[in-house]
């Protein structure tokens, strides 16, 4: 694994360039913020891109209501410290309005329900560009995603008809009603993000570091014991030292056993890890093409 971090400077320069293209090419951009490490990295990059001016777009969080409380506290603190505008839209409201139906059973999650809430919010605010923290190394379908990825009126991704992206040139021309998903850290790997967090000394939610948590085991994954996560009676609650490598909501994010309590040990652990990051994403395990299907429907 590459221990030289000079390549991260080139990734940072590329991401800053993309942030500035968004601000210049679109009327109403928004940064989709989940409270996870990737979106926290995006905020840092945006701060750097526009200094000494403030970030010229708001943040938006699609709240499933099943988030880790640590993530929400962290989100509110970050927004306050940086003086940013935060928009929150709740999946619970979409359920109450009958726009989506809650899943039930053993693997129920609100993860895929976020899509409707997100698309409704894009329409409500007339956002024409949504900046997200997806990375191409995360997952096979994401490896083909463009940096500027056009979505139609229905928020859908037409993966077979994507615009070619050449050199540094980003074509943000769209029709009214369409929007572009923008991925400034497309070319970063998980290790790059962690190395950057270490290098820049970026604060992240405590759940990324080893802590004692009530968990249970199912299908070889470590699930959080919580009122939001379905648990069989014979699935025994254990108390273990764990941390999270990726943070979605509680129902779709599995933990890893870990003693890494600070950023240096986390970076070390990722460097030596033999399991991919999304190996702990329960939502990807549904089928071989799980991510591609969700993306076509407008998932982030």
């Amino acid at each position: 694994m590459n221990k030289d971090t000079s390549h991260i400077n080139s990734l940072e320069n590329e991401a800053i360039y993309i942030m500035r293209e968004v601000a210049a090419q679109f009327d109403k951009p928004v940064l989709l913020f989940s409270g996870g490490k990737d979106s926290i990295t995006l905020v840092r990059l945006a701060v750097k891109a526009f200094y000494p001016a403030k970030i010229p777009f708001p943040l938006m969080h699609i709240d499933t209501g099943h988030n880790f409380p640590e993530t929400i506290q962290f989100r509110d603190k970050l927004v306050k410290e940086l003086g940013l505008e935060l928009i929150v839209r709740n999946v619970q409201d979409s359920i109450d309005e009958g726009r989506v139906k809650e899943e039930s059973g053993r693997y129920s999650s609100r993860n895929s329900l976020q899509t409707t809430t997100l698309l409704d919010a894009i329409e409500e605010f007339k956002f024409d560009a949504c900046i997200g923290g997806a990375r191409r190394d995360e997952e096979k379908a994401r490896a083909k995603e463009r940096i500027f990825s056009v979505r139609d009126d229905f928020g859908q991704w037409d993966e077979k008809n994507q615009r070619p992206e050449l050199f540094d040139m980003l074509n943000g021309d769209i029709e009214h009603g369409q929007n572009v998903r923008v991925f400034p850290i497309s070319n970063w790997t998980e290790l790059d993000v962690w190395s950057y967090i270490e290098k820049e000394d970026i604060e992240i939610p405590s759940i990324y570091f080893a802590h004692k948590r009530k968990v249970f085991l199912r299908d070889g994954l470590i699930w959080s014991h919580s009122e939001y996560v379905y648990q069989e009676e014979d699935e025994k609650v254990l108390e273990r030292m764990v941390r999270f490598r990726t943070v979605g909501d509680m129902s779709c994010t599995a933990a890893v056993f870990s003693e890494a309590a600070d950023i240096t040990s986390v970076v070390q652990e990722i460097r030596e890890s033999t399991i991919s990051e999304r190996g702990a994403r329960i939502d990807d395990k549904r089928s071989e093409a799980a991510m591609e299907k969700r993306k076509q429907q407008g998932y982030f």
Binding site: H7, R136, K144, Q162, T189, L191
Partner: peptide, 28 residues
């Protein structure tokens, strides 16, 4: 490991630009 899209897995050919990441002790 590289042919990411469903259509590609079905047809067994690569139809788009896929990006693959790896690093060594020296370089990314």
């Amino acid at each position: 490991a590289t042919d990411g899209l469903v259509a590609e897995r079905e047809q067994g050919i690569t139809i788009d630009v896929a990006h693959i990441y790896f690093s060594t002790a020296k370089k990314s």
